[in-house]
Amino acid sequence: MNEPSPEPHVDLVVDAFLAETGAEPEIELREALVQLRRLAATATPAPSAELESLMGDGAPIVLLSSRRRTIVLVTLAAVSVSLGLGVSTAAAVSPVFRQTAEDTFTAIVHAVAPGLGSGAPVPAPHKSAPPLVVTPTTEPSAVPAPNDSTPRTSHPTPPPTSQRGEGTDHRPVDPPTPTHSGKAVHPTHPAHP
């Protein structure tokens, strides 16, 4: 009997990548990639004052670890499926997780900005439900680390920067230009005392 992995999503991401590239899944290499993926498994960083002002009085940021976010997303996926969102269970395992997160986001995008994004219409979430299942907090930055027993180092570590490989990426750094220029929403800072 196989013991369930404590980080199924991490395993899925890494294994799917190794399978796609056809690389031999050597233990050491795989472990390095797992460690790399764990860099994203930190708690959501507390937003800066500037970001908070842009977020306005919207939904509170809850500092969830990646693992808890996955649980929330999986929960939402179950709700979404029951609403007819139709995530295909016949798809490969990793795409299911990926699709789950993306469908959730898409549903939320349509809920808060119906005209935004593209793709097929997504059923509106339940009227009485907030966009995400979160626990409201009054002081996001004061939220303690989640009770996650997984021994993860979530605190930031100053990145070592010596001996970096020579750079080869010297193309222009502008991100891809949006297809629809001139559609940008200009930030309007809400008046916060």
Binding site: A40, T44, M55, G56, S65, A101, A113, P131, T157
Partner: peptide
């Protein structure tokens, strides 16, 4: 169809909640 300020604020909040840890990990790496 443009999101209102409130809509943008909500979207930003959701995007931050969903992706900020990934972005942080990416930047650290």
């Amino acid at each position: 169809s443009r999101p209102s300020h409130d809509g943008s604020a909500n979207l930003l909040t959701i995007a931050y909640r969903e992706f900020s840890a990934m972005v942080l990990g990416y930047l650290r790496s």
